[in-house]
Design a protein around this nucleic acid. Structure first.
Length: 564
RNA sequence: CGGGGUGUAGCGCAGUUUGGUUUAGCGCGCAGCGUUUGGGACGCUGAGGUCGGUGGUUCAAAUCCACUCACCCCGACCA
């Protein structure tokens, strides 16, 4: 490709709307252009990168036994009502009406459609296992798109669905995908961290995310440097320890004038915050929920909602707390009636806690579970934090930020039972198909690759996903034979099947070199009067500082070698 | 949805506080001509603007007021 003909221009200045590095560089390099918030055009260079990623993914999906197909973006809204996900996704689900006033959704993911489709064709256990996938544009009306391609409203995604007869089959499919994903990231030159995750609105278990570590990441990862434990903070667990305050003592009221927060109460009574119980109030789909957790811990709302399964979960307002007859600042589950109580398991592991007295300015000492109060549910709902102890090895947990580039999980029969997708086994009995779901964001992967591979000058594409292999950079001079040599080299390299970006512009060397660096093409070949004096060209790797002179007759072979 | 910020040429910005020599300006980019060519060259000439939109105040609005739209950031939320 001749740069003089290439659609798209590099920008010297950083676009005002771009905040994170991948967004800035992709826009400056003329690879993407924003139409409206979270919606982008891919210009020829960016599109080539996306296609390279797509081909790697397609190759690995096919190798793992996947069959590619494509499903409709426009889907009847009733399907989403049937699965109940119209409510779970809420406004994230784009919807519109056709001319007959029938409501349609723009596909944010395809569990509903693929389950219905598989259900129509799979009849016997002989039809299984099966893996179907597509690479397609998805639509999600994000509350807040951000970071360029990191979180877009229209984006490219690969989604594969596995269908098996039973759990054992699902495990095999799951492992195949796990390996395929590792291969893909490896081939894209992208180091990833595999973390345990919450499966969110899609539902399911054994949820794993592939994270690219990056400052601009949106997800917090809690991991243990000592063992291999790593989890999304939404899901992470840690050692809470036991609070041993001796044998349970009789409950004793104590005056705590003006003390509302845990910090104040603990300070006033001269006890550790971990020796107190904290009450937090939520409204789950309109119903008040009383949450009890040890004073030094924080409630993880994702974990909490996995118990409550509410569509809308939020902290209660002060007015709602008062209206429920609860004494804010001195609330406790002791003697409480008529309100659902969810307790973190930390409250059951220890003795003689300080808790609210349910009277103004009053707390209770020596509160013990279950002697003094009972919870409807006792389960882990605490946030694990960096600095906590690892539950597996006891080491100290650390945290980092990551970009979620892939997410795989087991759906089991959640969708197959709703959409009546079943098969007949050897005995002639009918069973719902056991499913798995495996997503990967291509456009996000592209952004993550830039986050991971860049320097002050620009992008440094890994060879496998670079828009072109070679940046051919002649430095013209009147009366020299540079142009002639460069033209011939361009033709020869293309004939060899190399992907060449030919900077045939009459620009000064600085402009060309800077553009080459910004675009991040892995190999740069410079032809100039200086190199031609030695019958050579200069070869420089984008990822390296040094360059070398290569004799003209050897350069084609040399490049060929570097690329294969 | 709550909080904050920004909308002036393709891009980056100044001008808005205190309305009037502003015919709305600068840098980059773009077009033409000439010189230049190993790390964002230079000269001359030129094209390019509903000052986000609507309404209002005023003799006069990029500038003041009201409403509104868009974009960005933080938070909430999120696959």
């Amino acid at each position: 490709m001749r740069i003089s003909k290439l659609f798209g221009k590099t920008l010297r200045e950083v676009p005002a709307e771009a905040d994170i590095v991948s967004h800035q560089l992709l826009v400056r390099a003329g690879m993407i252009n924003q139409l409206v918030a979270g919606i982008y055009s891919y210009l020829p260079l960016g599109w080539r990168v996306l296609k390279k990623i797509e081909n790697i993914i397609r190759d690995e999906m096919n190798k793992a036994g996947g069959q590619e197909l494509t499903m409709p973006v426009l889907q009847p809204f009733e399907m989403w009502q049937l699965s109940g996900r119209d409510r779970a996704l809420g406004k994230v689900l784009f919807s519109l009406y056709d001319r007959r006033e029938r409501r349609l959704a723009l596909g944010p993911t395809h569990e509903e459609v693929v389950t219905q489709l598989a259900g129509r064709y799979v009849q016997s256990y002989r039809d299984l296992p099966l893996m179907l996938y597509q690479i397609q544009t998805k639509f999600r009306d994000e509350p807040r798109p951000r970071g360029g391609l990191i979180r877009a409203r229209e984006f490219s995604m690969k989604d594969l669905y596995s269908f098996d007869v039973d759990e054992t089959g699902l495990d095999i499919s799951y492992q195949k995908m796990l390996q395929a994903y590792r291969n893909i990231f490896e081939r894209c030159g992208l180091p990833v961290m595999l973390v345990e995750a919450d499966s969110g609105a899609i539902g399911g278990k054994d949820s794993r995310e592939f994270m690219v570590i990056a400052e601009s990441g949106e997800d917090e990862i809690i991991y243990c440097p000592g063992c291999h434990y790593a989890a999304n903070a939404e899901k992470a667990v840690s050692v809470k320890g036991r609070i041993d305050n001796g044998r349970p003592l009789p409950v004793a009221e104590v005056a705590t004038p003006g003390m509302g927060t845990i910090e104040e109460v603990a300070g006033f009574l001269r006890v550790l915050q971990s020796h107190t119980l904290k009450a937090v109030f939520y409204i789950a789909d309109g119903e008040m929920v009383f949450v009890v957790i040890r004073g030094d811990l924080a409630v993880n709302e994702i974990k909490l909602n996995n118990i409550l399964k509410a569509t809308d979960l939020r902290m209660a307002t002060e007015a709602e707390v008062i209206a429920a007859g609860i004494v804010a600042g001195a609330a406790s589950p002791v003697g409480l009636k008529g309100i659902k109580v969810i307790a973190d398991d930390s409250v059951t592991s220890g003795t003689n806690f300080v808790a609210g007295g349910n009277k103004p300015d009053t707390h209770l000492r020596n509160v013990n579970y279950p002697r003094d109060f009972k919870a409807d549910t006792v389960v882990d709902i605490a946030s694990a934090r960096a600095g906590d102890r690892c539950l597996k090895c006891g080491g100290e947990l650390a945290s980092t930020l990551g970009i979620e580039v892939g997410h795989i999980f087991k759906l089991e029969t959640t969708y197959s039972s709703k959409f009546n997708a079943s098969y007949i086994d050897e005995k002639g009995e009918s069973h719902p198909i056991v499913m798995g779901c495996y997503g990967m964001g291509l456009s996000r992967l592209m952004a993550a690759a830039v986050e991971q591979n860049h320097d002050a000058k620009g992008i440094i594409w890994p060879l496998s996903i670079a828009p072109y292999h070679v940046y051919l950079c002649p430095l013209y001079r009147e009366g020299s034979k540079v142009a002639e040599v460069a033209e011939k080299l361009y033709t020869d390299l293309e004939a060899e099947g190399l992907e060449v970006l030919f900077d045939d512009r009459e620009e000064s060397p600085g402009v060309k070199f800077n553009d080459a660096d910004l675009l991040g093409i892995p190999l740069r070949v410079t032809v100039s009067p200086r190199t031609l004096q030695k019958d050579s060209v200069e070869l420089k790797l984008r990822s390296k500082k040094e360059s070398e002179l290569v004799p003209l007759e050897k350069i084609v072979g040399k490049l060929r070698e570097l690329i294969s």
